[in-house]
């Protein structure tokens, strides 16, 4: 069986800054895969490179066995792969209603039955019809992120890339959004690739993960191994310790 997503020796450089060097990952169909690291580790750049938002300088990306190079992506590609961004305040067009936001993908791809689809999409993410004609500023952060998820799902993709989808949200809202993501993954049999700096969130959501640092993959491990502390790499150990929280001296 071909991998849902396969990244081979990928390099990404902005001007002369190497954001990613020689990164390889394989994500199986239906799997939930995590990328963990701190700022500047290149974890978000990897997602952006997959969808053509970052300049690839070397290596290759294959979705469903089909190799994609450069920054061009066909329209069909986006019916397979969609992305949810970190900041729900920045990822929704401030001058467009939810209705308009959800209509756009359908209009671009010439999908009919928009009315029913929009209603169903809002329903699926737990927003009622009363949200349909709101502007982003009329919603809370969690509600906005639900709209962003609805937009990503309305094209019925197979792979969902999640770039820190809950790091801008309050803890209780984070729990709701994580539950929603797990729900849609189960319902639709989606493949997830999730970026986060929070080991707790990643181990909750993903079966396997890699830790990244300075644009490279540091260690690949399963969530179960992480839970038992079976970690070999020093940096991963440091992350694990940091995630346990602050311990007061004396």
């Amino acid at each position: 069986m071909t991998d849902a997503l396969r990244v081979d020796r990928l390099g990404v450089a902005f001007d002369h800054f190497h954001a990613l060097r020689d990164v390889s990952i394989r994500v199986a169909r239906g799997e939930s895969f995590g990328l963990v690291g701190e700022s500047g580790s290149g974890k978000s750049t990897l997602l952006r490179a997959v969808v053509g938002l970052a300049p690839i300088t070397s290596g290759s990306i294959a979705v469903d066995g089909e190799v994609r190079a450069g920054q061009r992506r066909s329209r069909a590609f986006f019916r397979k792969v969609q992305m949810v961004f970190q900041d729900p305040y920045g990822s929704l067009h401030p001058r467009q209603t939810v209705d308009r936001l959800l209509l756009e993908p359908l209009a671009v791809h010439g999908i009919d039955g928009a009315e029913a689809r929009i209603r169903r999409a809002l329903d699926e993410v737990g927003l009622g019809p009363s949200f349909r004609f709101r502007y982003p500023h009329q919603m809370s952060g969690g509600q906005r992120q639900r709209v962003a998820i609805a937009r990503a799902l309305i094209l019925e993709p197979e792979i969902l890339l999640l770039d820190e989808p809950t790091s801008a949200l309050d803890a209780s809202v984070q729990a709701e959004v994580l539950n929603l993501l797990e729900q849609v993954r189960r319902d639709r049999g989606l493949t997830f690739v999730m970026v986060s700096h929070d080991l707790g969130v990643v181990t909750h959501m993903c079966e396997r993960l890699v830790t990244m640092r300075h644009g490279r993959v540091v260690e690949m491990l399963t969530a179960a191994a992480l839970a038992t502390g079976a970690v070999s790499n020093a940096y991963t150990q440091e992350l694990l310790r940091a995630s346990k929280g602050f311990v007061r001296a004396g």
Partner: peptide, 17 residues
């Protein structure tokens, strides 16, 4: 370079659109 324009690009919209 905002995320909301990136999101429209990910929908597959043409540059003119």
């Amino acid at each position: 370079n905002s995320d909301y324009i990136a999101a429209v690009r990910l929908v597959g919209a043409s540059p003119w659109r």
